[in-house]
């Protein structure tokens, strides 16, 4: 029946779409555009709709971030900061935009834009515009510590935050642990609190960081066990299973993503596997 012939064309639709995406898929990702570079320009064109425009720009920010992360072959996130600034400029009390925006900017690639200094700037602007928000300061302190390794600034901000009405009691003690110098313990505490106080993407992010810390702890335990093995046997184990045979560990651990650790019998050091989602170059 000729009238059913058109069905033969149906598979061509995804085919052509795929070809098209292959040719130009990166077109609008390579360089998106924003018309108006500052919030005051936007405001001039949309009198009386500042908050609505802020919402729209925030949606656009999230879209842009997701698109760059997912599809750009070489994501640069150039527009991320201006978009966040326009959003928060239009609605300076948009707490969510500061906090998520800072996460987008600060997280190392490929999860984020890898620009922690800009993330800190966004949170600092948030702290200025939201004098009563301990959460923005809590994020700021955490980011100082986690991304910039600056315990002093982190502790200062957290102490500042702890004086705000309604701030949780643990802010001050956390600031103390920053100053004591046990980074991993402080990190774990930060992400634990982020998990407890956060929601959505912030919470997912915290879980991820806690898993990384778990992985690091497990890695260090393995390395320590290998060292004890050497004390007893005069050599590093050839493979990790010898540690189990020697009764030094109960079983060969895997990291929270389920990936076995790498092990170097020459140096006796365990390492997070590169294929693991917990792997980060800075932990090498």
């Amino acid at each position: 029946m000729t009238r059913y012939l058109f069905l033969l064309l149906v598979p061509l639709v995804p085919f052509v779409q795929t070809r098209f995406d292959a040719v130009v898929g990166t077109r609008d990702l390579a360089e998106g555009r924003i018309y108006l570079r500052t919030a005051s320009e936007v405001r001039r064109f949309t009198p009386g709709f500042d908050n609505l425009m802020a919402d729209l720009y925030w949606l656009r920010t999230v879209q842009y971030f997701g698109e760059q992360r997912a599809f750009a072959p070489d994501p640069h996130y150039d527009l991320l900061r201006p978009l966040i600034d326009i959003t928060t400029g239009l609605d300076p009390r948009f707490e969510l935009a500061y906090r998520y925006g800072a996460v987008f900017l600060s997280e190392p690639r490929p999860a984020g834009a890898g620009k922690p200094a800009e993330g800190i700037e966004v949170l600092q602007a948030g702290a200025r515009n939201l004098p009563k928000s301990w959460r923005v300061r809590w994020d700021l302190g955490s980011f100082w510590f986690v991304f910039m390794r600056n315990s002093k600034n982190a502790a200062d901000v957290l102490i500042d935050a702890s004086r705000i009405e309604g701030a949780p009691f643990w802010l001050e003690s956390l600031a103390g642990s920053f100053l004591m110098g046990d980074d991993r313990k402080a990190s774990r505490a930060i992400w634990q609190r982020q998990y407890e106080t956060g929601w959505g993407a912030i919470r997912d992010n915290a879980i991820h960081h806690i898993e990384v810390i778990d992985a690091l702890d497990a890695r260090d335990a393995l390395t320590a066990a290998a060292a004890r093995f050497k004390e007893a046997n005069g050599r590093f184990p050839r493979r990790l299973s010898e540690l189990v045979d020697a009764g030094l560990v109960r079983a060969i651990p895997v990291d929270p993503s389920g990936t076995p650790f790498d092990y170097d019998p020459e140096t006796g050091k365990a390492a997070i596997a590169r294929t693991s989602s917990q792997w980060r170059s800075k932990y090498e």
Binding site: F6, L7, L9
Partner: peptide
């Protein structure tokens, strides 16, 4: 490719409309 897409998709729709 964009031309091809418009033609193919329109042809499918016209075929379905005709049916």
């Amino acid at each position: 490719w964009m031309t091809a897409y418009a033609i193919v998709y329109s042809a499918v729709l016209l075929g379905a409309a005709r049916l």
